[in-house]
Amino acid sequence: MKNFFTILGGMGTLATESFIHVLNERTPIHADQDYLNYLLVNHATVPDRTDYILGNSEDDPSLAIKEDIQQYSRFEPDFFVLTCNTAHHFFDELQEETDIPILHMPRLAVKTVNKTFAKSTGKTRVGLLATEGTIQTKVYENELTKFGNLEVVLPDAALQQDVTNLIYRDVKENHFFNEELFYQILRKMSEEFSCDVMVLGCTELSLVQEFTQNTKYPVVDAQSELANETIRRALDNRS
C-alpha cells in the first residue's frame, strides 16, 4: 500500500473510533477509492497516561507507544497520527524513535485558537479542559503561552473534578455521554471563568462534543483539528 499513514490509537478505544468516524466523514469522496489509506493501531492495553504522570502507577505508557512506533515505522507510512492528548507529554521522546513525522495535536489546536479567536487588542482567555495529567504536564499551556496574546485559564479543583468525572467515570467506564455535565462545564468556563473559547484537550471530550453537536459555546476541539490536518496531509501526499 502506498500513500498511507498510521494511527496510533486505543487510548481510549471509543475516542479512537470517534476519530475514525470524523476522519471518514470529512474526507471528500465520490467512490470507495477516494477514502484515505491508513493503518489503525488500536493498542488498548497501553497503560493509563494520567495515572503514570500523577505517580499513581509505575507502568510507563511511553514504552508501549515507542514499541508501536518502532514496529510500524518498518511499513514506512507517510506520517503518524497520535490520537491521545495526554500522550503528547512524551512527544519529543516518541519522535526520536523515528524519522517519520508525528502530528502534534495540541499544537494544531492552539494554532486554530490563535487564528480564529485571538483578539485584535488585549488577551484572549482560553479555557483548557483536559485530563489532570495533560494539565500537570503543561502540554497545552506551553503551546498557548508561545502566543503572547493568549491567556491560559484552568478550572478550579471542583470544576476539574467534574471534567475528570466526565472523562473517566462517564465516558471511559460507562460509555455515557453526559450531555448535562458537559454543558454545565462549558457554561461555567464561559460565564464564571470569563473564557472567550475553550479547548477540548481530551479525546473523550471530543467524543461528547461530537455526540452533543454543541454550537452554543465556543470551543476548539483538538481531535477535530487533528482530523483536518490528517486529511490535508494525506490528500497532498496522494496528489
Rank of each mutant, 00 (worst) to 15 (best):
I53W: 01
L54I: 11
L54T: 07
G55I: 06
N56H: 14
S57H: 05
S57M: 08
E58T: 15
D59M: 09
L63A: 10
A64W: 03
I65E: 05
E67D: 13
E67P: 03
D68Q: 13
Q70L: 12
Y72A: 07
F75P: 03
E76G: 09
P77H: 07
F79K: 03
F80H: 08
F80V: 05
F80G: 00
V81S: 04
L82F: 08
T83I: 11
N85E: 00
T86Y: 05
H88S: 05
H88V: 03
H88Q: 09
H88N: 08
H89M: 10
F90Y: 14
F91E: 00
Q95H: 01
E96K: 15
E96C: 13
E97H: 12
D99Y: 11
I100N: 01
P101C: 07
P101D: 03
L103F: 04
H104S: 08
R107F: 06
L108Q: 05
L108K: 08
K111E: 15
K111G: 13
N114H: 15
K115T: 12
F117N: 09
K119E: 04
S120F: 12
T121Q: 14
G122P: 05
K123W: 07
T124Y: 08
G127Q: 03
L129R: 03
A130S: 13
A130Q: 00
T131L: 03
T131F: 01
E132G: 13
E132W: 09
G133K: 02
I135C: 08
Q136W: 07
Q136V: 10
Q136I: 07
Q136D: 09
T137W: 01
V139R: 04
E143Q: 12
T145P: 06
K146L: 11
K146A: 07
F147C: 09
N149K: 13
L150E: 00
E151R: 07
E151K: 12
E151W: 08
V152A: 10
V152F: 07
V153E: 04
L154H: 12
P155V: 01
D156K: 01
A157E: 14
A158K: 13
Q160P: 06
Q160M: 04
D162K: 15
V163D: 08
T164E: 12
T164S: 14
T164D: 11
T164K: 15
T164H: 15
N165K: 12
N165F: 12
L166T: 06
I167E: 05
R169N: 15
V171S: 02
V171L: 02
